[in-house]
């Protein structure tokens, strides 16, 4: 439980200031971050139990009204690991997304594609003892956004993970294998390292799909780990 977190490798993350993603221009700090070893504030973090999770929380197809949402039925599954390759068990994962037409259920989304009356767009689950998670949903549609004059987000699912320490907190986006919009998206392209961007793209996983029911995509997530040391047992 105790122990310093490994320093974040900032070079594998997106650049905070990236003029192609216009909103980042006024919202990225100009001054360097203050770096030091993690402290108890980053090495501890909130824990959530199974009592938090309702029976339909991880089923976005049905969790809004009980009636099924319209769209391509998919199962998204994967593991949450740390940098040492150890599973992160019993950690909270939250997802949100647009509906099959690319429309979000949010007051600020004015896109002309209609809302699906049976789709809310949020879900959550805890990883199991081996760090595994899964949820059922419909594949989100691409949608246009006011950045460049004709910019479209690739189909994507937003993913939030807690880990076991506040310093592990991560929000990212999962993309879908083969989507030609990924290479054209200023947000996806804020990740400059191609290998790291590829890791945000979930492959189609026919082995975990089910005939006449749903397709599957696999999305593994890696969180910061802790430094191994036997000399820091004072916490």
């Amino acid at each position: 439980m105790s122990g310093a977190l490994r320093p974040r490798r900032r070079e594998i993350h997106p650049r905070p200031y990236d003029p192609a993603y216009k909103t980042s221009v006024t919202r990225a700090p100009a001054l360097p971050l203050l770096s030091m070893e993690s402290t108890p504030s980053e090495e501890t973090g909130p824990r959530f139990g199974h009592s938090l999770i309702g029976p339909r929380d991880a089923d976005l197809i049905h969790n809004f009204t009980g009636n099924p949402a319209i769209g391509e039925r998919i199962r998204v599954h994967g593991r949450v690991l740390d940098e040492a390759g150890r599973p992160v068990p019993e950690t909270l994962l939250e997802v949100w997304q647009a509906n099959a037409g690319g429309r979000y259920r949010h007051v600020k989304d004015g896109y002309t594609a209609p809302l699906d009356p049976n789709f809310g767009g949020c879900g959550r689950c805890l990883t199991d003892g081996e760090g595994r998670y899964e949820f059922m949903t419909v594949k989100p549609g691409a949608y246009p956004w006011p950045n460049g004059p004709n910019d479209w987000r690739p189909a994507h699912i937003h993913v939030s993970v807690f880990g076991h320490a506040f310093g592990q907190r991560l929000i990212t986006q999962m993309y879908f294998e083969g989507d030609p919009l990924i290479a054209r998206c200023p947000i996806a392209q804020t990740v400059r390292d191609r290998a790291q961007l590829d890791r945000l793209v979930a492959p189609l996983d026919m082995g975990e799909s089910r005939g006449m029911d749903y397709l599957a995509y696999k999305f593994d997530i890696v969180l910061r780990g802790r430094r191994r040391s036997v000399f820091e047992g004072e916490m």
Binding site: H13, P14, F64, G85, Y104, R105, S160, L170, Q173
Partner: peptide, 26 residues
């Protein structure tokens, strides 16, 4: 023998849908 942290992406303008659904009316 180590893995690399998954890259971050912006939470976007609709973060409330997933994290504070009641706040946005869901």
């Amino acid at each position: 023998d180590t893995l690399t942290e998954t890259a971050s992406q912006t939470a976007g303008p609709y973060v409330h849908i997933g994290c504070l659904p009641s706040f946005t009316g869901i």
